[in-house]
Design a protein around this nucleic acid. Structure first.
Lengths: 325, 325
DNA sequence: TTGTATGCGTTATCAG
DNA sequence: CTGATAACGCATACAA
């Protein structure tokens, strides 16, 4: 159970002092003000005893933990899972660890996690916010902490990275209009969530929405919506995210003259589904990359590259859609 | 830019000492050996100044960070994403934070992360191991750190949680045999990964595998395999995980007399796919719950509940399968 | 019941 | 070039 070696250990080992050892191992400018000879002795000893700096102590001293928090609504959502994976890999290359936080769309949880930021000396935050106003965010996030707001912009408050929902909605509507849909049903996620509200509003503005269902952005809501829509004789169902779309598709038993499904984000395996689907997909790799690009400069004390990064989506139609239309 | 309040702040505020404040705020047995009066004064001051303990300092002192590391091969895999989500929620309820680590099936990365364990005073680890032997693991994981090995058991070394791959493979083979498949193709993930090797071996032992393709457990491998299988006239294709299965399905353009797809883990949207599919699915909620159940006792210094938790999978056939067979 | 003193392992300041 | 020494904020053994 030998305790891990510390600077002390090496200092004793080399008959020098803790500060000398620290300077040598810090590298860079400081280590060059140390004699060649002791420097090598210290370095040799360090590898000999297998020295690893205690990052907790370092954090306490420097107030930097080399840790970033990623606060998303639910990592089980493949959209966030893919982003998280890419962010983690990129941050890891830059020497940062990732603390994963699920808010579950629960404001109380979000607040709890935001408090941990200071307490754990987290260096930066990438957040899919629940809090809606700039004011709320600024109250809750300790001033000076580098923040990137993901997926749901908060005007003016922070660096942000998101998809242009208007462009996405227009893309979807374009395709549906060209397909000559007349009556559309809308199944929407909670309207207090920016992306869902935004998508729903734009679609409603452009298309003839004759019936509508709102609920949590889960499959179950899609299934409930399907039942509600049963005798509405719609020729398209638009869903404000992929989970809702999957719920709808889950419910479809008979595929005789199915409505077109218009959906935001990807529907897996859609190309072979015997239902016409048009999915408007966000650029996940770019979103992840932009987050890191917005965050790193802030961590180094520079201003972020740009106030916000707005990305375009692209529409993907499956084979059944192309067949029907 | 007022620095956050510390025990000092409260001590001054209440004309007491740091240790008194510490004892009061620690609560429990210690706080009751403090006079009612000062206790209340201290607590009042604490809320007044908005005191939050500095967890970094506490960690340095106590060597406990209330942080668990989750080291998986890739969080973008929905299987791990769902598990991660459940684990995070459960641990959060128990007062732990989660550090997310992607090994990407890369042994070097795994080693890097394992070293961080000590350096960041991580309290415990849930790991999908790449290292294969008990010995390797024990060398790399600092002794005494609570560990739960997930998905890929390492005999004898640690508490482990995984699905019974033999049961799962048998389930799959049972269904395929009953469907009277004669010639099967196998597309397998890397054989150095336990689950893939295990599944491939069992399937090969029971079924008539006439052609086989191996590669990384990604969609692309499935697509490559499909091309290789083109004129092998098989009536079933078995994939050792869902990504491979999705690659296969991606490649299927014509659905005239498609082979049965047998696959481990879930294929989303499969119920409507015009291809007969049998998927053997692991019990994700149970896996996650078991991880936490195995970990928590260790964190409290007790022995784990059981050496290992082995869960059963269940087979799910889609509509097309039921139609054909 | 409460205060003083010490240490956790680092970094940073200040002498020499 | 190098070594004491002082923080960082907290917990705790030891005094009083």
């Amino acid at each position: 159970m030998a305790l891990p070696p510390t600077l002390q250990t090496i200092a004793r080992e080399t008959s020098t002092s803790v500060s000398t050892v620290s300077r040598v191992l810090a590298g860079g400018a400081l280590s060059r003000r140390i004699s060649e000879e002791t420097r090598e002795r210290v370095q040799a000893a360090a590898v000999r005893v297998g020295y690893r700096p205690n990052l907790v102590a370092r954090t306490l001293r420097t107030r930097k933990s080399n840790t970033i928090a990623l606060l998303v609504s639910d990592i089980a959502n493949p959209f966030f899972a893919q982003i998280a994976s890419l962010i983690e890999q990129s941050l890891h290359r830059h020497g940062y660890s990732l603390m994963l936080c699920n808010s579950g769309e629960d404001e109380a949880r979000e607040i709890q996690y935001l408090q941990l930021l200071t307490q754990k000396a987290i260096d930066g935050l990438i957040v899919v916010p629940i809090s809606r106003s700039k004011k709320q965010m600024q109250e809750r996030i300790p001033a000076g902490v580098p923040v990137v707001v993901l997926d749901r912009p908060i005007p003016g408050a922070h660096a942000s990275v998101y998809s242009d929902q208007l462009q996405a909605a227009n893309l979807l509507c374009d395709v549906l209009e060209r397909a000559k849909v007349k009556r559309v049903a809308l199944v929407a996620g909670p309207s207090h969530i920016y992306t869902h509200r935004c998508r729903a509003e734009h679609v409603t503005a452009r298309l003839n929405v004759v019936v509508r269902h709102e609920g949590p952005a889960q499959r179950e809501t899609g299934r409930a919506a399907y039942i509600q829509f049963l005798d509405a004789r719609v020729d398209a169902i638009v869903c404000t995210n992929n989970f809702l779309g999957q719920g709808i598709i889950d419910s479809i038993a008979e595929v005789t003259a199915p409505p077109v499904i218009g959906v935001f984000d990807e529907i897996p395996m859609s190309h072979l589904l015997p239902i016409p689907i048009v999915a408007v997909c966000q650029d996940i790799p770019m979103l992840a990359e932009a987050c890191v690009n917005q965050l790193l400069p802030q961590l180094n004390g520079e201003a972020p590259l740009a106030g916000s990064v707005v990305l375009s989506s692209r529409a993907i139609t499956n084979r059944a859609f192309q067949l029907y239309h």
